[in-house]
Amino acid sequence: MAKDSIWSPLLCIFLGLAIVSAEAAAPSTLYGDTDSTPRIGRIAVSADLKHLYVDVTLENGLTPQVVETLQSGLSVIFVYEISLESPRIIKGKELTSKKIERVLSYDSLKNEYLVAYGPAKPVYITLKDLDKAGEEVFHIRTRLLSLARLRPGQVYKVRVRAWAEKEQQSLLPFGGMVKMFTRWGYKTKWKEITFSY
């Protein structure tokens, strides 16, 4: 009798803890290569006289979850991770890598979207149209490195992936815990192209 009275709540507690652990440990959504899932679209490498540039497009970045989050007033951060490697037998040698952020937010009163370029020296653009705002966010062009660091005839690899994060909803009750229990955001797979210099 005593055993039941002690073990029954413990069972409940453990089940609860199991749920907590499962929720806490669950990864955010990793989208595969389906038509509507976010993915890295076009990667283009170009150069001027001095530098190497990369153009990247994120496709299907505006998922319903992102849109819903934006309309709730929260900012969504899109992070692009780009790296340039010199391929080797086992693992390529990373020549450079950088992270580029685009922050998209929505003002429900003014019914307009604000795109911030960052993270260094942020630039803001206000747009009325979500698709236009999306174009600003999902198409990036960045200078990768100096051409002097590249050797002619050598093959290089550009790897890109992107993910979305939401701004912390600080005003929500149990904000920290809510974040833990929210499967929010996505992360694309790495996409890579090789080119010969």
């Binding site: 929720e23 819903e68 989050t69 709730s72 809510v178």
Partner: peptide, 12 residues
């Protein structure tokens, strides 16, 4: 936001 995070909030 509350509505968006309704279920996580319940869990929390």
């Amino acid at each position: 936001q509350l509505k968006l995070f309704q279920n996580p909030m319940r869990a929390a």
